[in-house]
């Protein structure tokens, strides 16, 4: 390092601030210790710096500045948009994009909550309505079964009955419990109950069983592991859904009527 470079380094050196482990400063100070001209330069710089620092540090902030700053915390916590500066200007929301501002965010949050509650309410209403419709349908099926509908096509082979229903573009069972498949089939009929195209297959076991099948469409899901049992006086129904089809089995008797087949 030449003297000019050394002086440049020493110009930026403050004994109480800048660290001596800095290699450049270390070397410059060593040079100053061995060179009277550089030493004089350093002494003069340090005196000058000290005098300027003292003058700068004698500048005092306005008496109320501290309290104004401390009120920022409350302002920040309470209302980001309140002006609180010496100049009276608001510094808070101008640079904050609208979706980050407290008020629009709150409104948006409230709107979302209302919307969510609305959706839940509408969904719940819809679900309730669908369940009501299903219950009415099951009840209508029970009524139909009680009147022993006339069979349209008679055959002891379930596969033949299914083929008939398919050919008639009527719902046919896709999946049946083995216990029902094992029952003796008698015949089938197609009909419309409460606007739902439906097929009925009549089985003979220890009593007559009427199995109604329809496409589930907008009807709600039912637990297909455990059929929904309803008693309608003389008639008891067992309903379940599987593969987008609704099955309603109807038989005379109480809920025990299905103990052996479901």
């Amino acid at each position: 390092m030449n003297n000019s470079e050394i002086k440049k380094i020493l110009q930026a050196y403050r004994p109480e601030i800048d660290q001596l482990e800095d290699e450049k400063i270390k070397k410059a100070l060593e040079a100053a210790a061995n060179n009277t001209e550089i030493k004089a330069f350093l002494d003069n710089e340090l005196e000058f710096d000290s005098a300027i620092s003292q003058k700068l540090k004698s500048i005092q902030p306005p008496a109320d500045l501290r309290n104004k700053i401390l009120s920022i915390v409350e302002t920040t916590e309470n209302d980001l948009s309140k002006p609180n500066l010496l100049s009276g200007k608001s510094v808070t929301t101008n640079n904050i994009v609208w979706w980050k501002q407290a008020m629009p965010l709150s409104i948006a949050a409230c709107f979302m909550i209302i919307l969510a509650l609305g959706v839940v309410f509408i969904n719940q209403t819809k679900i309730n309505k669908q369940h009501d419709e299903l219950n009415l349908l099951i009840q209508a099926v029970a009524e139909n079964a009680k009147n022993s509908p006339k069979l349209e096509y008679k055959n002891n082979q379930l596969v033949e009955l299914t083929r008939f229903l398919n050919d008639s573009n009527s719902p046919s069972p896709n999946k049946l419990p083995k216990s029902i498949e094992d029952l003796k089939s008698i015949g089938c009929v197609t009909m419309d109950i409460k606007g739902h195209p439906m097929s009925m297959i009549c089985f003979k076991g220890d009593r007559l069983y009427h199995l109604y099948v329809t496409e589930q469409n907008k009807l709600p899901d039912l637990n297909n592991n455990k059929p929904t049992i309803n008693n309608w006086g003389e008639i008891t129904t067992a309903a379940w859904t599987i593969n987008n089809q609704l099955y309603i089995l109807s038989a005379e008797g109480d809920s025990n009527v299905y103990n052996d087949i479901l």
Binding site: P61, P62, L65, K68, I69, I72, V73, T75, T76, N84, L85, L86, S87, K89, V91, T92
Partner: peptide, 18 residues
Amino acid sequence: SEDAAGDLTQQTFYIWAK
């Protein structure tokens, strides 16, 4: 400017608070 310096100081702490 003293006013501007006060504003800058407050704004700095405001940003810190946030």
